[in-house]
């Protein structure tokens, strides 16, 4: 494997966003790119990352390899990079280590680190292609604020999507609260758009603890996409350049 990423910062932000959910995981490398799928310990949430080969320049992966990496170790090494550094990931066949090289774009500084790999026996789940009943795009900062605000009142949030808009509501010991968003187009700042694409009304309840955790990825993308269907996991997607993505799936609360 040899994969050069224009911004080391991208991988750093991905790792910062997921490391409180998953600790040790396999980075599956093949000629289409670098993928990661991992559940949290309680099997409530699933992280799915895809960094497509097009996100790298150049990208070369001659044989499929799984790089088993402890994310705390990876985070430590990624913190050694400067924010504008270019990152090259390298691994040999049947590797013991993954090699990370940071290059400064405007100086001759080159730093190099090896991280020891681990054997991780990871369960891989099949995620079915789903036509969701509601697809909502909204500013990622807005979603983060809603989740944090409602978590002050309750541990769970009901998300209801109708023709009128999307309503986030909660009920707790001190009282209740709700935030409703309607479709909204801002020509000057498309990052502020709220788009709601609905085929049938949806109402589901989710744990806010996990949603707040997912929102650590807000720095990766100005917009977040929420995809919902009744009685299936919520998809929270942060799109990255070149069709790469960081996705989180969250199992709904049941038995309301």
């Amino acid at each position: 494997l040899e994969a050069r990423l224009e911004q080391a910062n991208l991988l750093k932000k991905v790792v910062d966003a997921i490391k409180d959910l998953v600790q040790d995981c396999n980075f599956d490398c093949n000629d289409s790119g670098i993928a990661l799928q991992a559940m949290d310990n309680s099997h409530v949430a699933l992280v799915s990352m895809m960094l497509k080969s097009e996100s790298f320049s150049p990208f070369r992966c001659d044989r499929n390899i799984a790089l088993g990496i402890n994310l705390t170790s990876l985070q430590k090494v990624l913190r050694c990079a400067n924010s504008e550094d270019i990152l090259t990931l390298k691994a040999e066949d049947a590797p013991d280590v993954v090699n990370l090289v940071f290059e400064s774009a405007d100086s001759d500084r080159l730093s190099e680190y090896d991280i020891k790999l681990m054997d991780i026996d990871q369960e891989h789940l099949g995620i079915p292609e789903t036509e969701y009943a509601a697809n909502i795009s909204m500013p990622s900062a807005e979603f983060q604020k809603i989740c944090r605000d409602l978590m002050a009142l309750s541990e769970s949030v009901a998300i209801e999507c109708t023709k009128e808009g999307v309503k986030f509501s909660c009920n707790g010991d001190i009282g209740s609260g709700s935030v409703t968003l309607r479709s909204h187009t801002n020509v000057d700042k498309p990052e502020n758009n709220v788009e709601i694409d609905l085929t049938e009304p949806v109402a589901l309840t989710f744990s806010l603890k996990y949603l707040v955790n997912f929102c650590k990825a807000s720095g990766l993308s100005g917009q977040v996409k929420l995809c919902l269907s009744n009685e299936v996991p919520l998809l929270v997607e942060y799109g990255l350049a070149s069709n790469s993505y960081l996705r989180f799936y969250l199992a709904p609360k049941i038995g309301d």
Binding site: M39, S42, H43, V44, A45, L46, H124, L125, G126, I127, P128, S156, T205, S207, V232, P233, Y249, L250, A251, P252, K253, I254, G255, D256
Partner: peptide
């Protein structure tokens, strides 16, 4: 009350 669903009961083996 409401219980928490398990992601494995929705997404099967590949």
């Amino acid at each position: 009350g409401s219980g928490q669903g398990n992601i494995k009961s929705f997404f099967g083996p590949p």
